[in-house]
């Protein structure tokens, strides 16, 4: 759409700008403020320069948490995106099955995140949970409380359970928008199932897949509540993600300076990655 140049449009954006600025800019400036100052308590602060930043960047704790975050996001993206596409391809196209599938699949998305954590914490428990109990009776020594591998496995299955539906619904939306004529043309050409997927369905889903990828990456990168409820960051520090570490530092130990410096680094990483995604997305918009 060719848009008119009109700077008065700023007035329409103003309410949003003020509201978001109140909620975003002021808190962010507070964080910046803390990140460059140190205190002896008593609300007396003095300039600390980039001290906290270099502390954070030199600490193993930060890099390990960052590594865990990247590993987690990587694993769940490689599972959820292909699985979501597979399920979306096999969804019923019409009839009663459609609303039933949509409603049931969307259900996990609307469960409060700590309830998701609670559900899986209970479900995986060896004494009272269906999953833990079943695995135990099969002779598998599953225990997410003190086994690192089991803790990770539980978190990954939980995230797949929680969020794959988002990918499914997005892909499904992309698929139903493909006109029937495309499939008929493919049939006349004798296209194989794979060719239909590769040259018709995948290109049509590109746009929604990008949204799915973007949303899933961002949300998994800042995951907090669910692992906090299920494992509390343990066993040891094995599931302590950046956000968990951050809250521990800021509210638990009240180390405001390092926590603020870490917040800013964390935010900058997300900002950089988001900018890359945004550029890719808008450039694909212009091609279309």
């Amino acid at each position: 759409m060719n848009k008119t140049w009109n700077n008065k449009a700023w007035f329409m954006v103003l309410p949003v700008l003020l509201l978001v600025a109140f909620s975003a800019v002021i808190p962010l400036m507070t964080v910046v403020n803390y990140s460059v100052q140190d205190t002896f308590g008593n609300n007396q602060f003095f300039w600390n320069g980039v001290g906290w930043f270099s502390d954070v960047l030199e600490s193993d704790r930060f890099w390990q948490a960052l590594g865990r975050n990247l590993l987690f996001s990587g694993i769940i993206l490689t599972i959820e995106i292909p699985l979501g596409i597979l399920i979306a391809l096999n969804m019923p196209k019409k009839g009663l099955g459609v609303p039933v599938c949509l409603v049931l699949m969307a259900l996990p998305l609307l469960i409060p995140w700590n309830v998701v954590g609670t559900i899986w914490q209970v479900f995986g428990r060896v004494d009272i949970g269906l999953l833990g109990r079943t695995l135990h009776s099969l002779g598998i020594n599953y225990n997410y409380v003190n086994n690192v591998f089991d803790a990770w496995l539980t978190l990954i299955i939980m995230d797949v359970w929680h969020w794959t539906s988002l990918v499914v619904l997005l892909c499904y939306a992309g698929l139903v928008s493909i006109p029937e004529a495309y499939y008929q043309a493919a049939k006349i050409d004798g296209a194989s199932r794979w060719a239909v997927f590769r040259y018709i369905q995948l290109p049509k889903m590109k746009r929604v897949l990008l949204i799915a990828f973007l949303l899933r990456f961002m949300d998994s990168f800042m995951i907090y509540t669910e692992p906090f409820v299920v494992t509390g960051g343990g066993p040891g520090n094995s599931t302590t993600f950046l956000s968990i570490d951050l809250v521990k530092m800021a509210i638990g130990q009240f180390d405001l300076g390092p926590a603020a410096a870490m917040s800013i680094i964390y935010f900058l990483i997300i900002l950089l990655l988001s900018w890359i995604f945004y550029t890719v997305m808008t450039s694909s918009d212009e091609q279309a």
């Binding site: 978001v20 800042m222 964390y266």
Partner: peptide, 20 residues
């Protein structure tokens, strides 16, 4: 402006909890 708005969707709540 549009990108700046989107970055707030991407801001980790953990960063904002204390300043909020």
């Amino acid at each position: 402006l549009f990108f700046w708005l989107l970055t707030n969707r991407m801001a980790p709540p953990a960063v904002f909890a204390l300043p909020f």
